[in-house]
Design a protein around this nucleic acid. Structure first.
Lengths: 116, 116
DNA sequence: TTCATTTATTCGCCTATCCGAATATATACA
DNA sequence: TGTATATATTCGGATAGGCGAATAAATGAA
């Protein structure tokens, strides 16, 4: 039985919010860094070579959507992935991406051949 | 061996583009509609109850990112999912979403009890 | 308390993206 | 050709989201 439409819309809106958190180059990099294990903000900053304020702002986005957890440890704050399935989903999309890229490469190849 | 950083950044940017296509309520609804099978634009319009121009614009975004395919059939254009794994990824994120929502519900519950 | 370190937030500015409305294009058929 | 149907695009305005720079807040140690 399908959901009532307004409810379905609301779920989709939340779903879009989750996806929106993934729709940024730096946040993707952060999530993959955290996939290796919990890290302090400073570690992320040096690993990604991005300004500290920028990393903090992105972490806030991920935190608000509960995709990462934050735990203070003295002067440091340790961030961790809240759910491994986020990485699983990203990996799945990376596979799709790879196929899209190889289709494009094949097309470029065909065009090159045709032109010669 | 890790990828060279600029290359990694470029991959992440593409990855973010793919995720960006998923970061919209209506596009999510469209993708789930197409998960049931190929559909013409008009069918999507009536299924989703969204203006035709809006559906077309969103389809364009999905088409450009090669997440759906379009095939003209007379006056109609039939759209289809380009890759089932897109739905798999969305489903995975929906599971994460469900857990986030239930954590929130539990928190709300706890706050209610404490207040009484 | 004062200073150093680590992290978070705020302020403009700029760009991207969404929408509704209107319009354009493509096809089928008389 | 002319008309109806199906789909796509464009325009202008509103909103969201990104960034750099500056600043604030939290903690630890002298």
């Amino acid at each position: 039985m399908p959901l009532r439409k307004p409810l379905q819309d609301e779920l989709n809106a939340f779903h879009a919010e989750i996806c929106g958190a993934l729709a940024d180059t730096r946040r993707i990099a952060i999530l993959y860094e955290l996939a290796e294990g919990p890290k302090a903000v400073g570690e992320l900053v040096s690993a990604l070579d991005v300004p500290q304020a920028t990393v903090s702002r992105h972490l806030k986005v991920l935190r608000e959507r509960q995709m990462v957890t934050a735990q203070r440890d003295g002067a440091h704050v340790i961030y961790a992935l809240a759910d491994e399935r986020i990485i699983a989903a990203l990996d799945l999309l990376r596979e799709v991406m790879r196929d899209i890229l190889s289709r494009r490469a094949a097309l470029a190849q065909a065009m090159t051949l045709e032109a010669s």
